[in-house]
Write a protein that binds this DNA or RNA. Sequence first.
RNA 1: GCCGGGGUAGCUCAGGGGUAGAGCAGCUGAUUCGUAAUCAGCAGGUCGUGAGUUCAAAUCUCAUCCCCGGCUCCA
Length: 645
Amino acid sequence: MSEVKITLPDGSARTYPAGVSGMDIAKSISEGLARNALSIEVDGEIRDLSRPIEQDASIRIFTWNDKGGKYAFWHSSAHLMAEALEALYPGVKFGIGPPIENGFYYDVDLGDLAFGEDDLAKVEAKMIELARQNNSFRRREVSKSEAIEYFTKKGDPYKIELLKDLTDGSITFYEQGNFTDLCRGPHIPTTGYVKAVKLLNVAGAYWRGNEKNKMLTRIYGITFPKQKELDEYLLMLEEAKKRDHRKLGRELELFAFSEKVGMGLPLWLPKGTVLRERLEQFMRKAQVKAGYDPVVTPHIGSKSLYVTSGHYEKYGKDSFQPIHTPDVTEEFLLKPMNCPHHCEIYKVKPRSYKDLPIRLAEFGTVYRYEQSGELHGLTRVRGFTQDDAHIFCRPDQVKEEFIKVIDLVLHVFTALGFENYTAQVSLRDPANKEKYIGEDALWDRAEREIQEAADERGLKTVAVKGEAAFYGPKLDFMVKDALGRSWQLGTIQVDYQLPQRFELEYVGSDNQKHQPVMIHRAPFGSLERFVAVLIEHCAGNFPVWLSPEQVAVLPISERFNDYAASVINELRSRDIRGILDDRDEKIGRKIRDAEVKKIPYMLIVGEKEAQEQKVAVRKHGAGDQGSVSLPDFIATFNKEFAMPV
RNA sequence: GCCGGGGUAGCUCAGGGGUAGAGCAGCUGAUUCGUAAUCAGCAGGUCGUGAGUUCAAAUCUCAUCCCCGGCUCCA
């Protein structure tokens, strides 16, 4: 009998009879590994543990602790849910059912059946019942004709559509219990591995993600090998909800929405405005240092401005419609972008190559008509303020300028403690070139320059096709919110198109006219979205320098209100934002209220403090810190109160 | 925009054909207090909005607006 050499992740090799299964190997290594093994990677391909290995190979056995193990687990769970659905709702048609980052979903066509949240519990129960049957997932290779015949008989049109894109020889079925699905795999050994099931929600999803197609019902779920892990996950979700910026925004009185003002149009309350203005000041400082010139432009612009820029053609019909004047020939648009205005600033006078780069910065408030279903707290709104700037530079300066902007973005992220961001190079979709304007050569050049600049700063980037702006590729900085949803914050974009459309030029050293290149950039992205993500990032416990209220002075009783007032006045004279709680309440109550408001420092003053001219310092979330004189308190924490440089 | 789920007091929520409820917040009074909720009283809602069914609608029907979870979109 022939043998195969199996190389393990630690580099050691073992010999097994040819046709050995992943599970056999796991058993030969340890009982525990065999018990926890979910899938196996064989020469880079993730497979079922049951598949025989016929040739020498490097392997890695995946457990719940590996992404490859979890994915197999959740993929199998999707099949289990499908089996349950088919048992409960005969005739249900299946789309796709993949594992996702946290769990899995299956897109199904339930015909006329209205499937609501109430049905989820029923399906959950059925899934548990089927899991207990501990059926094996069996893999079977089928021919294309056989597969089509099967799904034709079963009446599953979506599967047949999927099969059309597959070629003979690569088609496999997986069966467990009474359920058979077209599937590439891999799967866990049996359904019995699934011990805990939670179906989270139902949502509509267009077949194949195309809004022209039929909308299927998408059921999201998550499963675990242990009930305890599910309980922990659900608890984690509860905790995440407490960080939701919409909830904290209301509780901390940062912002609000009003139906009367209009959906997606945030109202910044006094405390939110402090926070926002501190961020603006921080950025202004950094930009002055980096050689930017602040400018201000109006909130509306003549329609022709956007016809020139191309925005009107691209977005005009889906946007806020033009504003009319008594003179019917005039039309203005609420500005959806600041760049056209800035182009016109560039054009106010002839520019020399010696003037470049010119960096025009503006906290520009823009308005975009987002679809109603898209609005989401502060992260997706219809009116927002970008920390926008446009850099007009010579072609030979693009990379250097781009790198400087990356540094600025990283400076912001570092100052605010964002460590878990992804840098995404957003490229054209080569299959849909009509979505973009401009020549191929310029696009290629811009895409190359972005990648080079990112590499030069050592950024780990992910390139995503089809995410570019219509006028150019971007480098986007993505951050996740409390519930794991990804949002774009900072963005840097190279643009050769607008300079062309606006006929921007400069006189070169050769005394000839040349076209500058534009770099659009916004390190925050928008103040609104940035604040939203910041709130969730720090759960409302802002860095002290950003905190709307930095210190609460809490007199023990009315008798010490005068001393407390002198303390708060001294703080305010040092530009420290404080409140005085001189209500007729007990100190425990005042402390509790200040804690709930997440005020970083509480200064408690009573008999002793008034006599000794001290303050009793209490830190939010950390408790009593002892008494010091007020000047000592200010000196000790001054760094925290001041804006970082 | 599409699919599903929701809108009851400022907030969190109960009530599901028969005169609108609680806790917290608010106001008034008492209390003058040492590190996360003092006590008492009062006030507060055309039950998102508009139609319809009914003797009677917060409750049932329809429409509409807004919110929530996704999908599509995102200059």
